[in-house]
């Protein structure tokens, strides 16, 4: 029971981390674009999804999509809604990382004749990630905690299963207390992982420190 819930939480988290990172990268490049339209659209996206509670967004998709003939299960809806919402937070963090990249480096890359895509992918993104990985990490930790909200759309992840166990055993305090501790451990492990990655990305920076 507990293990099943953990697997659902873990897979939703993993898929949404990837999804929100991809959305975050695209929107962040939009937000620093030279074209005013793209910039406005990207900043509007960030503002919109950061200022509306996630639970409202998830209900919008969960109840709204079947209305327009899209029938997908709670797992897919949840992953999608999480990716879209957390993508806005990731985009904001990445945007400030990108804005901190030395323009000289970008100009040098342009002069070397690298294609636009290569400049984004190989030059700007890795440099921006060095700075924004830590804040991005706390965004992802928040994502893992936010997966608990998906229990309100009938997804039986950790929290959803805990609700069932609590009402079966009549021991809600023990169940929810253990669950809280488990989330703490989970986020702690994630933060260790992010620290490792941060150190790896910054391995060339030793001399500069």
């Amino acid at each position: 029971m507990f293990w099943d819930g953990f697997l659902v939480t873990a897979s939703v988290s993993a898929l949404s981390i990837v999804g929100s990172f991809l959305i975050g990268v695209i929107v962040a490049f939009g937000a620093v674009s030279r074209r005013p339209f793209l910039r406005k659209a990207a900043r509007g996206y960030i503002g919109l999804f950061r200022n509306i509670p996630f639970i409202v967004q998830v209900f919008f998709f969960y109840f709204g999509l079947p209305e327009i003939g899209v029938y997908i299960d709670a797992f897919t809806t949840g992953t999608m809604a999480l990716s879209i919402a957390v993508g806005a937070y990731a985009a904001d963090v990445l945007r400030s990382g990108i804005e901190n990249v030395d323009t000289g480096v970008i100009e040098a890359a342009e002069v070397s004749g690298l294609s636009r895509f290569k400049i984004y992918r190989r030059i700007i993104l890795p440099i921006a990630l060095r700075v924004s990985l830590r804040p991005l990490g706390s965004v992802f930790i928040n994502l893992v905690l936010t997966t608990s909200i998906l229990s309100t759309i009938t997804l039986n992840e950790l929290t959803g299963n805990a609700k069932i166990v609590a009402s079966d055993t009549f021991r809600p305090f023990e169940v929810y207390f253990f669950l809280l501790l488990f989330y703490c451990v989970l986020t702690y492990l994630l933060s260790l992982l992010i620290n490792l990655w941060h150190r790896r990305l910054n391995r060339f920076m030793r001399g500069a420190e």
Partner: peptide, 11 residues
């Protein structure tokens, strides 16, 4: 800070 508010509410 490191646990979901929803579960805190349930607790």
């Amino acid at each position: 800070k490191n646990s979901p508010v929803l579960v805190q509410l349930f607790l």
